[in-house]
Design a protein around this nucleic acid. Sequence first.
DNA 1: GCGTCCAGGTCTACC
DNA 2: GGTAGACCTGGACGC
Length: 319
Amino acid sequence: MTERNATDEPSYVEGAMLITTNLSIQTPPHFGFWSTVHSHGWCALPPFHVDKHRRTLTRLLDLRDGTLVHCELRDGSGHIVVNVQSHKKLVDDQREEIKASLREALRLREDLSEFYGVARRTPRYRWVHSAGAGRLLRAPTVFEDVVKMICTTNCSWALTETVVGNLTRFLGKQFAGDICSFPSADALAGVSESFMRRTIRSGYRSPYLLELAERVAGGRLDLESWRSSSLPSGDLFREVRSIKGIGDYAAGNILKLLGRYDYLGLDSWVRGKYYELHKRGRRVSDRTIERHYAPFGRWRGLFFWLEMTREWYKQKFPF
DNA sequence: GCGTCCAGGTCTACC
DNA sequence: GGTAGACCTGGACGC
């Protein structure tokens, strides 16, 4: 089907008049909207938000010209219905930018045909294709993905939610009420380490986050080029790994969000899951886990992650 | 309510 | 190259 836009309609949120624009984004065959949204924890971190009752994913986008738009995504048939709210009427370029950002986040342009071919030939992964699983939700920007990944290291998920929530609340741009954007590198680079520690609660990760933001804001580090990098995965891994605060776990998972699945990105949760599924709870070395998935070649990280999270799909996403 | 212990990745110093 | 200890927070637990 062709992509289409509907007419602009005004509405009101907390006294502010908002313009509503309806957009539609075509999806590839066998795309699973909810399988992608719930592919990992990003959907629970602002400025993403899942509304279980309305069956929507919402996301605040900060466009290149500084315009904030609130997007509410719904699963359509062969397309995604996007309800966009903005303070001013959107022009064509802005509409296209919104659709491009959402395609990036939902990985709609990623060619997974080879991966699905392997999955269909492997009995224990035949469910993947029919579930529309395999696309891992990511942020519209690499900067946001990297910051969030650092915020997942060495802490509970509850703390990750707290820190990311504080980043958007205190350093993002306010759209309406408590709906704020993810902070830009400029905004993050402009605060002190003590503010990060006391207010953002990012603890010892604070200097790492500030150094990252300062390098990006100063133009000394181009994270966004990573998504189109021609570097071999090993070289890209080493480049990602060279950022302070990013070790093997974080780098492996950032590579997955860049479309490279050569690394497993092991943390305590997935190790425990592997022991449970394959070794009756007995611990084994990381090398043993890596050997197990080596036959899947460049898709091993994706097969590994989907096997570890298969229960989520069976339970229709319990989070 | 308070204090203590522990889990969670990464960095750095040291061997 | 491998290892120990520090980093910081929040949850669990005992008192």
